[in-house]
Structure formats: C-alpha cells, structure tokens
Write a protein that binds this DNA or RNA. Structure first.
Length: 448
DNA sequence: AGCACA
C-alpha cells in the first residue's frame, strides 16, 4: 500500500489544464515534433522542450482546455501510445495552468523590453540601477532579472509599446553611466530587444524582481534572514532592520539643505510626520519619520545615493534608524513635527529663496551631460530639457527635486507653507523630460 | 518515468 498518491507531486490524477506535461521524450525533441503530436487535438499555442535534468520532458499548451482533455482522453484509451520518433511518451495534465516561456524575444514592438547587460561586471548591476535608467522614459511597472546563457538579462515592463520603444531607441547599445555603478566596475553595455511578454509575473519583491505597481507585495522569503530581524540587501549583504524612520546623511553639501528641502524631497513618497536635523562628524544628518515602514522603504530605495541638486551636490545616504517615533521638543529650523495641526506655531517661513540653490539647481557645466547616453545626433553639452531622453536620464539621478516635487504628497486640504511658490519654481517643470508621465512614487489612496 | 525562472 505504498501509494505514490500520498505524495502530492506524484498524484495519479491531475486536475485538467490546458498545459500537458510530457516525459520520456527522445533526445533533443523539437518544438515542431511537439506541435505535430498535439495538432490532431487542437491548437498548440506554446511549448517548452528540454525540461528536466535529463532534458527529456516537455510541456505543450493548447488554446483551449477541451483540446488538452481530448488529447489526454484519446491516449488514455488508445492501444497506440503517444509516440515521438517511435518512442513512447507519457503525458498528463501539468500542474500549471500556463507555460511561462523564456522565449523572451519578439519581432514586434511590445511594452516589455528584454535587456541584456554586457560586460565583465554585468551582474553587479543592481535592479535599482536598471530601474533608474529606464524610469527616465516613463513609469516602469515591473522588472525581473535572470542569468541565462546569454548572460545577465532583465525584462523591463512599461505601460505601453511607445514608451518601451523610446527607451529602446535611446538606450540600445549604450553604456550604463558609470556614476550609477559601483566603483571600479567596468563598462556595462545595454543590448535591448522587445520581449514577447506583455505582463511579467512578479510574486514578491526580491533582489531579482520588482513590481513597482504594488508596493505591498511581500518581500521574497529568500531575501529575509531566518531571524527576520535583518533583511538581505541587493548584494546579499545584511542590512539594518527596516524602520519607519530614516537616517539621512548628506555628503558634499555645497548648498544649504534646509528642513523644507528635506520635507519636500521625502514627501514625494508619503506623508512625512517628523524631521529632526543635527550635525554629526562634521556633516549634516537628519531623521525623517513616516507613518509606516513601507513608505520609508520606498523612499530609501528611491533616494539612496542620489543627489538633491544637480552636479553631485548634497548626496544622500540613507539607512534605517533605530528610532520609530521621534520626539520633537520644539519646532524650529532644524526639527519639526508635521503632525501637530497648529500651523501658526510652526511657520518660520524659511523658503530656500534666500539661498543660492534656486539658481544653481542646474549647474552651468553639467558634468554628466550626455557623454555616455547622448545620441550622436544631439549636442552633448546642451541637453534639451523637454525633448530628449538624455534630459530624462539626467533628471532621474541628479535632479530629484525636479522630478519629485512635481506632485509632492500633500495632506488633503493642506498647503504647507514650505510648499510655496519659491519651492515649486526651483523645480520648474521645464526640466522634466517629455516622457515624465511617470506617476509620482506616492499617491494618496494608492497604498491603502 | 513524474513538472520549468526569481
């Protein structure tokens, strides 16, 4: 009575599926042979051969469930077994409902790009860098990365084929800007084709896959340490536990970074409850409190390593704080509790208009101007702010204010004084790339 | 001869 059916993976009967699992196939069975086998019963819409350790298994997917049932039923009662090249093949319903194929390339333009990253250090390119690069062309819905014989590859999903093709046209054959990459790593060239996918299935956020449309997606179990206290970072190194409070330190602070600048930058991801600024080791640091961990994670991932101002000025380094609720004793120019409704009390009306950054947001000599990305037909020193993809690329990593203050988070019915016209002008929409239909990272109501 | 990526 050693019933194999007690092992779920060897159940004798599978529930019907459009997908059939085939085994005992001859060596190097081709897709054509599989189609030939299935054709009498219906339309084979997809196949996958050379599956399994011996590469002698395969899947075929019919257009219709009834066609799969017809094939199974036929061979269940036939005296002639199913055969390929005279070899008996065994078939049953697959335990999956559709074939997910890695036939990643397509001939026609689609909304998903297949990106191959070439270069000795290609696999050191993080999914966040890819996200940044491709976000310059529009909202990136999802990214998955994987390693195949072709090397390190990624699938990047946009809303539509138009956005995807603008990214493809701009980036194919170009190098990822070195300033986005870790130190001392070689050039990484992007080779881009269209993928046959239209909607990637991302089950959890991990170091290999992201779904930017669903911030509530669970983090991959594989990316969480057994204790659960520490999560594993993009490079597999341990990180401090996540927190709703971020610790930001500001490097290369050529320009004053005020409470209001920080509030604006961090408000792009959700309501900022409290900010406390202080000096440490000769540099400026700030604690930024969000209502929840999730928002803080979003903000950290988006902002880490980026500069508030163009030209590498005021670079942010962000980690999770051990704090969870800051105690703000007094509202002044270095600390503020935005949850206190008494706006009259906290209104020093600082405005960065009094500081130089307004005129220096776009430094005259842009150090990154198109040298790596700019198409040869354009003037590298003169990125066209509203027309070129180059401006978009540059805007993403270097002018966060320009992009993020576009639609900062505002509490319903509230117009904080620090969101005055001075602030908005500094982030003038003129710097936004044309394709900046990119939704703001945070919208009230979107995240429950 | 028994189910594919993260």
């Amino acid at each position: 009575m050693a019933s194999v059916s007690s092992q779920p993976q060897f159940r004798l009967t599978q529930p019907p599926s459009k997908v059939l699992h085939l085994r005992n196939l001859p060596w190097e069975c081709t897709e054509e042979e599989l189609i030939e086998l299935g054709k009498p019963f219906g339309k084979v819409v997809n196949t996958k051969c050379n599956v399994g350790a011996n590469r002698n298994q395969a899947f075929i997917e019919f257009a219709d469930l009834n066609q799969a049932i017809a094939m199974i039923s036929y061979y269940a009662s036939s005296s002639e077994p199913a055969q390929v090249r005279g070899k008996t093949v065994y078939l049953q319903y697959s335990n999956r409902q559709e074939i997910v194929n890695n036939k990643t390339t397509a001939d026609v333009a689609g909304n998903v790009l297949l990106v191959t990253i070439e270069g000795a250090d290609a696999r050191l390119v993080s999914i966040d860098v890819l996200h940044l690069v491709f976000s310059a062309f529009g909202f990136v819905h999802k990214i998955t990365t994987f390693e195949k014989t072709a090397g390190f590859q990624a699938l990047v999903q946009f809303s539509d084929a138009e956005t995807a093709s603008s990214a493809k046209n701009a980036l194919d054959g170009r190098n990822i800007p070195s300033y986005l990459l870790p130190e001392h790593i070689g050039p990484c060239t992007l080779r881009i084709t269209y993928s046959a996918h239209t909607d990637l299935s991302v089950k959890f956020q991990s170091h290999r896959s992201r779904d930017y449309t669903n911030p509530n997606l669970p983090v991959a179990p594989s990316a969480i340490d057994g204790g659960g206290l520490f999560s594993v970072g993009l490079d597999g190194k341990k990180l401090e536990p996540e927190s709703n409070v971020l610790l930001a330190s500001i490097e290369n602070m050529q320009y004053a970074v005020t409470l209001d600048v920080l509030h604006m930058v961090f408000s792009a991801f959700g309501p900022v409850q409290k900010i406390a600024m202080f000096d440490k080791n000769g540099g400026l640091q700030a604690l930024i409190q969000y209502p929840d961990v999730q928002t803080a994670v979003l903000a950290k991932e988006a902002l880490e390593g980026h500069c508030i101002y163009d030209g590498g000025f005021c670079k942010l380094h962000i980690s999770y704080s051990r704090h969870h609720d800051l105690s703000i004793k007094v509202n002044n120019d270095r600390s503020r509790d935005y949850t206190i409704p008494n706006t009259a009390m906290l209104n020093p009306q600082p405005s960065i208009l009094g500081h130089q950054p307004v005129s220096t947001i776009g430094p005259p000599a842009h150090p990154y101007s198109g040298t790596q990305f700019a198409p040869p037909t354009e003037h590298p020193a003169m990125p066209q702010p509203s027309a070129g993809w180059a401006a978009g690329v540059l805007a993403a990593p270097h002018s966060m204010l320009a992009q993020m203050s576009n639609q900062p988070y505002l509490p319903p019915g509230a117009m904080p004084p620090q969101m005055g016209p001075g602030m908005m002008s500094m982030a003038g929409p003129s710097r936004l790339p044309q394709g900046a239909a990119m939704p703001p990272p945070y919208r009230p109501g979107q995240m429950q």
